[in-house]
Structure formats: C-alpha cells, structure tokens
C-alpha cells in the first residue's frame, strides 16, 4: 500500500522482468531524444543561432536608423522599405508596437539578421512559415537566414509587450 510504511528489506525486492524491460526501453529513448539535438547541428539545416552580442538599446536603435538611411528604397504607410544587398548585415528593431523596417530580400541569398528590441521583450514570429525567435533588449541576436521561397511574410509579435501587443506586425518581402 502506498499509504503504509515499509519494513526493512524492501530495498532488496528484485525488479520484475517486465518493468526492467520498460525502464531499459525508456532510457534508450531518452538518450536518443537527447542525441538528436547535437546531431541535428551536424546533419540538419535548421538550427537556432548561438551568435549574439551585448549592445545598449540606444546603440541598436542608432544602427537600425543608419541601416534604414543607407538602403531605403521607399515607404509603405509609416514604415520605411529597405532593400539591402545580398549578404549584407540587416537589422530588425522591435519597439512598442512596431517592427522596423519593412525588409525586401532576394530569394536564395544569405543575410545576417540582427534582431533586438529597444524597450521591452518582443517575439519575432515569421508568418506563415512559423519561425520564432526572441528579441531581448540589450542583446544583438544574429540569425543567419536564407529565404528559400518568394512572397510576402508577416512578422507577428509573440511575446506580450503591452496593451497593443496584438497590433505589432511587420513585413518581409522576398523577391
């Protein structure tokens, strides 16, 4: 009974064969689940980045503004549309409650995307391909990205960032 105390000797009860088999299978499964993560870094193409730098939010703000000024090709509503050259360092700035700028990228080219926030936490969720990364103030998170299909992608904020959180949408155009 699970509500009664045990008398000395209980530790010596042998484990039943069926339970031993179950534990062994479960342990093997646990080890496989663990191994798949480092293994995927070798064989897979889809891995989270570990490249990040500390940066003051004011500095990230300034860098994004410089990036926008340098490659701006137009406007869409209140947003600057920016078309950086292939292979460039590109910036995406989260703030309450917008993603700046609108990025125009070329398909099958690789970019270094710098992601951060200048106020509270934000979450970059790229719709409809559903890729999610965290934008943290004070950290420049560098994601190496290669768009593999053309079209328009939305950036949904998926980290609660205040009352207008659901209105925080951005845009990436891949041509």
């Amino acid at each position: 009974m699970s509500v009664q105390s045990l008398q000395p000797g209980w530790w010596k009860t042998p484990v039943h064969k069926e339970e031993r088999i179950w534990i062994t299978v479960a342990l093997i499964w646990c080890i496989l689940m663990t191994l798949i993560m480092p293994l995927w870094h070798v064989v897979g193409e889809h891995n989270p980045s570990a490249e990040y730098y500390r940066i003051a939010p004011e500095d990230f703000d300034k860098l994004t503004d410089e990036f926008i000024d340098k490659y701006k090709v137009g406007v869409e509503g209140d947003f600057a549309v920016v078309e950086p050259p292939a292979g460039a360092d590109i910036f995406l700035r989260g703030s309450q409650w917008q993603w700046d700028p609108v990025l125009k990228l070329k398909v099958n080219e690789t970019y270094r995307l710098h992601l951060s926030s200048i106020d509270v936490l934000h979450g970059m969720s790229i719709y409809p391909i559903n890729l999610n990364f965290e934008a943290v103030p004070g950290y420049d998170y560098v994601l190496t990205i290669t768009p593999t299909s053309t079209g328009t992608f939305n950036i949904i904020c998926n980290e609660f960032c205040g009352i207008s959180h659901h209105n925080m949408m951005g845009k990436i155009i891949v041509q």
Partner: peptide
C-alpha cells in the same frame, strides 16, 4: 499553434495593425 497562432494575443488577425494576417 502549429499554424503559427501566437499565445497571449487578444486578436490574431492584426485587424487594427498596419499589416493583416
């Protein structure tokens, strides 16, 4: 969630935002 609907969001369509989904 598999379709990318985010948690903790009052409105997933972005009806009042500059871009709609």
């Amino acid at each position: 969630g598999g379709f990318g609907v985010s948690r903790r969001s009052w409105d997933m369509s972005g009806i009042e935002s500059p871009f709609q989904v």
